[in-house]
């Protein structure tokens, strides 16, 4: 007591660990904030390049309803993105149809049934699958899937919605499987044990307890897959046929939004109408991605709040 009254704040000095703590905090803050900064920067760039054009010069009615994308036709170019939107939507939709059941099934098998060595080998293989570059998938679509589809369905062209959808489904599946499996693993073993002790069969445990409690993570996995499919460019460019077309069957070739930007941007004059129209497509992609994420968020929160 006497020492404290002496006036000097005994022991109050900023030591090394105090500074390290401050530095660590600053570095982590910078890391965390950079994600936001980059997203905003990208948004500003895309908006600056295309938003003025999209709002004032572009005929939005034509953009959303016309299937004619003729950016270079003279004298009057037509910027109709409907065929591209339908192309992307049909490919992504088909891909999800293929990959969601496969991924969830694979995740359940790896997470709940496989054990020991089988499980480890499967996980490594799935991760390996996720690491295959998209151009390789495009190559497979072009060189393997295409002739296969021509043979099986007896059609003259093998690059189509079906081809791109299957390739994209295969591409999205490993990531969805990995994330879905993580979601299943996050379910505490106590839940499984409690349910099994009640006499639930393995399938009942999964169906009644594990899947409901992993639901948020599974939705996240699926949405990430949708995002992956939606944004994928190279494989879709190679496997879809890349021809502007309103598909009437899965065997028709189509063109995707992303592939259009990739294929055309390099050949346009900077600042030209065509260039800025491509950025308008970019804004559309950005907006849709944003909405998907927002929906995921609302869904996850909404579920929590209603319970």
């Amino acid at each position: 007591m006497a020492r404290k009254e002496g006036g000097s704040a005994g022991g109050d000095h900023l030591g090394r660990e105090w500074w390290w703590d401050k530095i660590a905090q600053a570095v982590l803050f910078g890391g965390g904030i950079s994600a936001i900064v980059f997203v905003i920067a990208i948004f500003v760039f895309v908006a600056q390049q295309g938003l003025g054009f999209a709002l004032f010069d572009l005929d939005l009615a034509t953009f959303f309803t016309s299937p004619q994308w003729r950016p270079t036709s003279e004298p009057e170019p037509i910027f109709g993105a409907l065929a591209l939107i339908v192309g992307t939507a049909s490919i992504t939709g088909l891909a999800m149809l293929v990959s969601v059941p496969f991924s969830i099934g694979a995740a359940i098998f790896i997470g709940e049934f496989a054990s020991g060595r089988t499980r480890e080998i499967l996980k490594v293989l799935v991760e390996l699958l996720a690491a295959i570059p998209s151009v390789v998938w495009g190559f497979i679509g072009l060189m393997v899937m295409s002739p296969l589809l021509m043979d099986v369905f007896d059609v003259p062209v093998g690059v189509s919605v079906l081809n791109a959808g299957l390739i994209l489904g295969l591409m999205a599946a490993p990531i969805m499987t990995t994330i879905a499996e993580d979601a299943l693993k996050a379910v505490p073993d106590g839940f499984r044990e409690a349910a099994e002790a009640m006499g639930a069969t393995r399938w009942q445990v999964i169906r009644q307890v594990v899947l409901p409690s992993a639901k948020n993570g599974l939705v996240a996995a699926v949405l990430l897959g949708v995002g992956r499919g939606f944004g994928e460019t190279m494989a879709v460019l190679m496997a879809s046929g890349h021809s502007i077309n309103m598909p009437s069957s899965p065997l028709d070739p189509v063109r995707a939004l992303t592939a259009t930007i990739a294929a055309e941007l390099g050949e346009t004059a900077r600042g030209s109408e065509h260039y800025r129209a491509l950025f308008s497509i970019g804004i559309l992609l950005f907006a849709v991605t944003f909405v998907i994420n927002l929906l995921a968020d609302v869904f996850v929160r909404g579920r929590r709040a209603s319970r």
Binding site: F191, E193, A194, A195, A197, M198, G199, V209, S213
Partner: peptide, 25 residues
């Protein structure tokens, strides 16, 4: 197992509604 009820040391409220927890069995 359905004939034998078990209560564990740490309570395990399954991530279901209260109703569904009891209706599960």
């Amino acid at each position: 197992r359905r004939r034998i009820g078990v209560v564990f040391p740490l309570p395990v409220g399954l991530p279901l509604s209260i109703f569904d927890n009891v209706a599960l069995s």
